[in-house]
């Protein structure tokens, strides 16, 4: 956990909830932890601070960068990434049936738990904090952005939705229904995949190109349709998906979905 400590260096203080933030919560005396938690609550509700408090509404906008892969809130399901319902206090890599990288499972096994501090460090530089993570997000540089996003995550992942009526239920968009209805042929998918694996590695390694193995069918199909219909922008992927039909997309989803990360 020494690495966690170094990750929290050089941060800007953002208000009273930042007392002792250089020390991860689980290293602090419990009273300090409680104090900082109360301060965090204060920061969310007080407007008379010298510096801006964490803004969950702004965080909700920043969350758009996460939405393609992560669902949040009651009824959230696993997608490309694990769902974020009940995130705070959860052990890393612990959701059953989600295909984590071995790196994330190992960190969870070693005791990594998602808190204000660990999320902050992870979101700042995901691949530095959990080397080998399959999350292809590059990182959020600004402390204020991370504070706002985490404030939103804290509210939206609350298992009691009544406490936050303004948080929408996760959307489960019905995209690619025709492809979803098909049973993809994994052999055909393996053939088609030869075009994909020039960049996307079958091992699940993500060196600048996202990992696409082990995704749920719905998430895979949605991603390809999002590129095909230019909802998600990426020149190569828009080009690659332009000529893919439903049968091909279903086959690719079946093939890549069947591969476990190493």
């Amino acid at each position: 956990m020494a690495g966690t400590g170094t990750q929290t260096k050089n941060r800007r203080t953002v208000g009273p909830h930042c007392l002792n933030r250089r020390v991860p919560a689980w290293h602090r005396p419990i009273s300090t932890f409680v104090l900082s938690f109360l301060c965090a609550l204060a920061a969310l509700t007080t407007s008379s601070l010298a510096e801006p408090p964490a803004d969950a509404k702004r965080g909700q906008k920043l969350y758009r960068a996460c939405k393609a892969c992560h669902e949040i809130g009651v009824d959230a399901r696993n997608g490309v990434g694990p769902h974020l319902d009940g995130l705070f206090g959860r052990t890393a890599g612990s959701i059953e049936n989600f295909k984590y990288s071995s790196a994330m499972r190992i960190r969870g096994g070693a005791g990594l738990e998602w808190t204000q501090e660990t999320l902050d460090a992870y979101l700042e530089k995901p691949r530095a904090f959990v080397g080998g993570t399959r999350m292809s997000y590059r990182g959020m540089k600004k402390q204020q952005d991370r504070d706002d996003l985490i404030a939103y995550l804290r509210k939206a992942s609350d298992r009691d939705p009544a406490a936050h009526p303004e948080i929408p239920k996760p959307a489960h968009p019905e995209i690619g229904a025709e492809a979803m209805a098909l049973t993809g042929d994994p052999d055909y998918g393996e053939y088609l995949s030869s075009e994909c694996v020039t960049c996307h590695q079958l091992s699940g390694r993500a060196d600048g190109i996202p990992s696409i193995i082990g995704w749920p069918k719905a998430a895979f199909i949605r991603a390809l349709f999002d590129y095909k219909t230019n909802v998600r922008s990426h020149q190569v992927m828009q080009n690659m998906t332009a000529n893919l039909g439903n049968e091909e997309i279903a086959a690719l989803a079946a093939y890549f979905g069947s591969i476990d990360p190493q």
Partner: peptide, 10 residues
């Protein structure tokens, strides 16, 4: 960065 990833992939 994508090109570096592609190099590893190809």
């Amino acid at each position: 960065e994508e090109s570096v990833g592609w190099y590893e992939g190809i």
